[in-house]
């Protein structure tokens, strides 16, 4: 395996780690807090209802935006670090 191949492999592994981490948060805020764990969050009141309702109707959407921007920033940085960016 050449140095270049190793570099490419490390880049791809770093990308996969980042994706898996992000998708865990993605699933946690929507399927977790918004749906499945809502009964567990029922005690936390938010404006006439509970935290689970907030995550289902607002919190998850806000988290998704933050996740995408974080991923784009991190990956564009990784592209440069591994010398795999365009130009």
């Amino acid at each position: 395996m050449t140095v270049q191949d190793k570099n490419a492999k490390a880049y791809w592994q770093a990308n996969l780690r980042l994706i898996i981490g992000s998708l865990i948060i993605w699933a946690l805020v929507s399927y977790g807090f918004g749906i499945l764990f809502r009964p567990l969050l029922a005690g936390i009141a938010v404006g006439g209802t509970d935290l689970g309702f907030w995550f289902a109707q607002q919190g998850s959407i806000i988290t998704f935006i933050i996740l995408i921007f974080f991923y784009a920033w991190k990956m564009n940085k990784l592209d440069k670090e591994f010398g795999l960016d365009e130009e």
Binding site: S22, L23, S30, A56, Q57, I61, F64, L67, I68
Partner: peptide, 24 residues
């Protein structure tokens, strides 16, 4: 009501998948 929050999460959460798994 709450039961149809699925549309809100479903039609936005897909962009996370798009950004990480397909678009680039």
């Amino acid at each position: 009501g709450y039961a149809n929050s699925t549309y809100l999460m479903g039609w936005t959460g897909g962009y996370v998948l798009l950004a990480m798994l397909l678009a680039p």
